[in-house]
Design a protein around this nucleic acid. Sequence first.
RNA 1: CGGACCAUAGCUCAGUCUGGUAGAGCGCUACGCUGGGGGUGUAGAGGCCGCAAGUUCGAAUCUUGUUGGUCCGACCA
Length: 586
Amino acid sequence: MRASRMNIVTLRETPADAEIVSHQLLIRSGFIYKSGSGLYIYGPMMQRVLNKVRAIVTQEITTAGGMEITMPIMQEQGLWESSGRWEEYQATRTMLTVTDRGGQTFGLAPTAEEVVTDYAGHLINSHKQLPVCYFQQHTKFRDEIRPRFGLMRVKEFVMMDAYSFHASDESLSETYEEMRQAYHRIFERCGLQALEVEADSGSIGGSGSHEFMIAADSGEDTILFNRDSAYAANVERAVGVISAAAAWTWSSDLVEVETPDQGGIADVVTFLGEKGYAGIAADRMLKTVLFTAESTEGTHTVAACVRGDRDVNDVKLSNAIGRQLPEGVTVLGLESMNEATVRQVTGAEPGFAGPLASLAVDICIADETLEEIGPLVTGGNKTDMHIAGFDLQRDGRDGIIFEDILTYQAGDACPRGGGELSERRGIEAGHIFKLGTKYSAAMGATFTNESNKQQPLTMGCYGIGSSRVLAAAVEQYHDDNGMQWPMNIAPYHCVVVAARKDDEGKQVAEDIYKELLASGVEVILDERKLGPGVKFKDWDLMGIPLRLVIGRGWDNGTVECKARVDGTPQDLSRDEAIAWVQAACK
RNA sequence: CGGACCAUAGCUCAGUCUGGUAGAGCGCUACGCUGGGGGUGUAGAGGCCGCAAGUUCGAAUCUUGUUGGUCCGACCA
């Protein structure tokens, strides 16, 4: 391609609303253009990168046994009602909808379990047809409340989604493993370092799932991991072992302590310390956090208890609440309880809640690490009053459920033994789920098994945010001058910069360009009438991996060869330069 | 959905407090000079100051409303 025909428009200044580096560089380089909030045009260069990622994904998923199909973006409401997810996705406002002239409402694909389950259910009648796996790479929609971070969080994006169907859990596990391997190959071929972590399965549901995280400080997810034991999990799901609470000698009698205006944990600890309660620390406090949970059945008041120095894990809590509700009832959302309701359920000002008989909530869940700990200090459900010497087993209200609802953190011990957990940020680029029969059972997608019985299809589903992978690649590979695309997904392999004014110099650049082109190299000839500095800045910004310059070196018959990544320029002869490029982009 | 902020040239922003001729840098156009890291000279084009009402002799500037956007939180395969 000739640069003079590429309409290259690069920005010197960073747009005001671009916070993270991938957003800044993609905008400045002209790779993307904001069409609206959370809506982006992929320019010609970006499209080429996307095409390459898509090609790699298609190849690897096909190798893993997937068959590519295309499903509609518009999905009938009835399909979603048959799985029971319509209400959930409307209530959580995850799904965008459109209505036609007849008044029929459609969802804009946030994912396609319902559509594909309906499809497979009609095509698959016998266990002899199994297993089977379909996939597509198509536009997906999310009703993002707040799009941000450029391509990271948008309303419309490209995602590969694959769905496998099985006669047994064993078969599902085999395919799940094949897909897991395929994911690793995909990220490797894209030149990305991805970390596989245990994950929460969220609103998709199912029995097990892993996420593929691309490590980046700007990532929105937190990963806890330990290299020695190879444990890695999303903090939403991660478990660990917390250090024991510091010793605290107490007569174990229940004592009410006046704590005027001491609502927070830290306040109470300081206050009690001054009052002579020696050795009391935050880990001897029992923190009671109050929530209001919305479910398909109604509103529930919830108390969640954790050790005073730790935090409640919302995701785990939400799952735990779901297990307390009747079959088929789904938790839609979890909110901090408003102050008026707090006063109602505790009979006190906010800050003095405790899991006593006087706590009038529908559900009370205590973290499992509190089962064996005591005595503690907790709120007394009276304004300005705490209770010391509290033992949850002995003094707690009836019906307390013990579950893991703790947010683990760096420094906690690894659950697989050995050392401490470390923490890093990651971008969720892929997610695989063992769905089981959640959708097939609800939608009546069954097959005849070997015993001549109808059985719901066992399913797995697998997603890769293709467009998010692009942003993650920029996050992972860039420097002060711009992007650094890995060769396999770079929009072009090489740019030939014509930096001489004389006719011979121009002709040499032209000839080298044509020769590279003919040998299958994806190459750009920059013959624009611009100073060389401008050209260098442009291509560094756009991150083309290889650069040849026909400039002052040509006086001695040499061409400057430089790799975008940590390359020191080297002067080679014309033919050597061509060979250098051909070798580098193999 | 709570809280904060912004809207002036294609982009980044001054000007608003204290009402009185519409500004800068970058980008763009033309013509030179120049060529190894966004070079330079001259001459230009480009704005209903988001929109609507109000106050005023007079509004980018003050008031109210409205619409879009941004940030923090909540939410989120």
